[in-house]
Design a protein around this nucleic acid. Structure first.
Length: 678
DNA sequence: GAGCCTCGAGTTCC
DNA sequence: CTCGAGGCTC
């Protein structure tokens, strides 16, 4: 149906239908993650809409799909698990923190104070990280960072980027190059001008433009976008690239990868800080956006020893530029109720641009924070995006205006129960528990959320819809949704395909990971890590419940990482009759699998190692990190549970105790041999 | 008893 | 991503 064949009246009618249709597909895609039509079909609808609007500009609707922000879904690209995780970086904001970083490095490696620690320093480009895998010199796989473990396959798209070589000469057999895909400031401006001219959507900033351009299903779209690439690291390798970061980067440059002009080796912290200044100076004139400077320990062997903590390497630091700030008006203060009953005040702002995006909401954290800043509705405020992501109020510009203070509600705005702060706590909580509809619904959302049961097609909106119909009171009811199949089929937006898709997704979670089910219950202080720790000790949710019942606090506290507060929370949860009832139903309906520890089973998994005496070749932290890499734990004191003691010179009482208990004692050299073999 | 590290909880925008 | 709290180490 070409635009030219329609009369004006027919066009208006068609535009109305398109608006309705596209909005419905957006809902299906975003809220339910259960699209009914292919991306190509969806794109065709959007294109038809754009064509009609271009031809009849005066017919463009208030609710036009082209005006709705975030309307177009990004295509679902294939998922790729990284051979080695793509790490994030620790952030620092001041020269002090950079000095502290190097001190930490020295301490960890047991280096003397005067041992120089050379660093590399390079601009931190504001684009998106990408991993390029070359086998036999050929580009075989390109993936976005994603969550660091699993990214998206963008191989065909990266083949259209001129900076990225398709073929390497003299490269290692296996080489995973990592770097930043970005768009230059000039190209971004030009692209937006073109988008405007063709009626397409504007991008908020070069970063979003780069991300949107790379994550395209159709590589021809990517090809038409001016993307660039700069190398900054590597992943899996069949052979080392060099002995230092500088050498490795130089090798990659010779292989044909672009390296940032401002990449430098710095002999001392002061050199590095001077280079930071130089980069900050050059910032405005650089062709691309940057948000800081990245320092890395230059020596590869030290990088290796330093390893990682959490999801960041110990050998790198991102020194960020001060956050951009903006002024706006705090129009209203609203109170949200979370799944734990916490009342969170949220500020609604007159929308304002900060750091490349429009911000209209800001969290005000809690009652104390509002009081500390003297915030009231109508105040002018200065805001910034913390770590360039989460907006926060940094200053109340009109706090001296004589107006009454904001009154924090004494009751839950959702259920009317008392809202109180516990002794010594800053958070105000609704005391209504499951009486409170907000808490009930938030808990259900948590149960199906990505980190917990992760049920496809059961998003927040759907939970609200079903709870509103009275179908969901507790998590167990989710496994009974099949009973409502015919009712659901009668509802708008639910066709046979989407209903059966949802029911299949729920069925797929029977026999699922018990740790995620336990986490999904939403017991206070029990996140995914603690849930796993508990199951490691108790095996099943049933035995955990049994242990938590009578006098359970002591037994729970014996679990590593569980102290009196967490133990009491678990005990309290299972003490409540309706929780026990829900859990019983849930276990019967969902029948979670037996818990399997994720850690690789080695001869060291689960063993406890104690280091004592002074260690020569490594610091205590490094020794611990080595033990954890083997799957073992390190403890401070020798007890009957200790499996191995590593004793250095000067070991005293712990060594004696180990001998008394007949525990295996080895020296540092033997330990290093064990580590090297593993 | 103080300081460090890990984990949990809440939240923004796209 | 940040903040605070809980748990552990020294």
């Amino acid at each position: 149906m070409a635009a030219g064949e329609l009369t004006e009246a027919e066009t208006a009618n068609r535009l109305m239908r398109l608006a309705r249709e596209i909005a419905r597909h957006n809902r299906l895609y975003h809220d339910r993650d259960a699209p009914e039509i292919s991306d190509a079909d969806y794109d065709a609808l959007v294109r038809e809409n754009a064509a009609l609007e271009a031809r009849f500009p005066h017919l463009v609707r208030q609710d036009s799909p082209s005006a709705v922000v975030g309307a177009a879904p990004t295509s679902p690209l294939a998922k790729v698990t990284h051979a080695r995780p793509m790490l994030s970086l620790e952030n620092g904001f001041s020269p002090d923190e950079v000095h502290e970083f190097v001190r930490r490095v020295r301490r960890f490696l047991s280096l003397p104070e005067d041992e120089p620690v050379a660093l590399t320093a390079e601009p931190k480009i504001d684009g998106l990280s990408c991993s390029l895998r070359y086998e036999g010199g050929r580009l075989v796989l390109a993936a976005t960072r994603g969550d660091g473990t699993v990214g998206e396959d963008v191989t065909p798209n990266t083949r259209t980027i001129g900076d990225i070589p398709q073929q390497l000469n003299g490269a290692p057999q296996l080489l995973e190059v990592r770097g930043e895909v970005y768009m230059s400031k000039d190209d971004f401006t030009a692209l937006n001008a073109r988008q405007e001219a063709s009626g397409g959507k504007n991008f908020a900033n070069p970063r979003n433009a780069a991300a949107g351009s790379l994550r395209q299903k159709d590589p021809e779209v990517t090809a038409a976008r001016p993307l660039r690439f700069l190398v900054h690291g590597w992943g899996e390798l069949s052979e080392p690239l060099g002995d230092t970061q500088t050498e490795c980067v130089e090798r990659l440059r010779q292989l044909g990868f672009p390296v940032a002009d401002l990449f430098r080796r710095c002999e001392t912290v002061d050199d590095a800080l001077a280079h930071y200044q130089a980069i900050e100076h050059a910032r405005a004139d650089l062709p691309f956006d940057i948000d800081g400077v990245v320092y890395k320990v230059d020596r590869s062997d030290w990088q290796e020893r330093l390893g990682t903590v959490g999801r960041a390497p110990r050998w790198a630091l991102a020194h960020k530029f001060p956050a951009e700030k903006a002024e706006t008006t705090l129009e209203r203060i609203e109170i949200q109720v979370g799944r734990t009953g916490k009342l969170t005040p949220v500020g609604r702002l007159t929308p304002v641009g900060v750091g490349g995006v429009i911000v209209s909401n800001v969290t005000l954290h809690n009652r104390d924070e509002i009081a500390r800043q003297g915030l009231r509705e109508g105040d002018r405020v200065r805001i910034q995006r913390a770590g360039d992501v989460i907006p926060q109020v940094v200053e109340n510009l009109t706090r001296n205006e004589p107006r009454p203070p904001f009154v924090f509600p004494p009751c839950c705005p959702q259920c009317g129960s008392d809202a109180v702060a516990e002794e010594g706590e800053v958070d105000v909580r609704c005391t209504g528990g499951l009486i409170c509809p907000a808490q009930r619904i938030e808990r259900l959302k948590h149960f199906v959320s990505r980190g917990a049961m992760d049920i496809d097609g059961l998003g927040e909106k759907t939970i609200e819809e079903f709870a509103g119909l009275g179908w969901l009171h507790g998590p167990a009811d989710i496994f009974r949704l099949a009973d409502h199949r015919s009712d659901l089929l009668g509802r708008e937006g639910w066709k046979e395909k989407s209903v059966d898709g949802l029911l299949a997704a729920i069925d797929a979670r029977r026999g699922f990971d018990p740790a995620r089910l336990l986490f999904g219950l939403g017991i206070r202080h029990v996140g995914i890590v603690t849930a796993k720790d508990l199951l490691k000790s108790f095996g099943t949710v049933e035995s955990l419940q049994a242990a938590a019942g009578e006098e359970g606090i002591a037994e729970l506290s014996s679990v590593e990482g569980v102290g009196p507060v967490v133990a009491a929370a678990v005990h309290d949860f299972f003490h409540e009759a309706h929780n026990r009832e829900q859990v019983a139903q849930l276990l019967a309906l969902a029948q979670p699998a037996a818990y399997i520890s994720q850690a690789r089973a080695t001869e060291w998994s689960g063993k406890t190692v104690v280091f004592t005496g002074s260690l020569q070749s490594m610091s205590r932290d490094e020794a611990k990190a080595q033990a954890e890499k083997l799957g073992a734990r390190s403890a401070a004191t020798v007890s009957a549970k200790t499996d191995l003691v590593v004793a250095g010179p000067g070991a005293g009482s712990k060594l004696k105790k180990a001998e008394e208990l007949g525990i295996r004692v080895i020296g540092e050299d033997d330990w290093q041999r064990i580590v090297a073999e593993a």
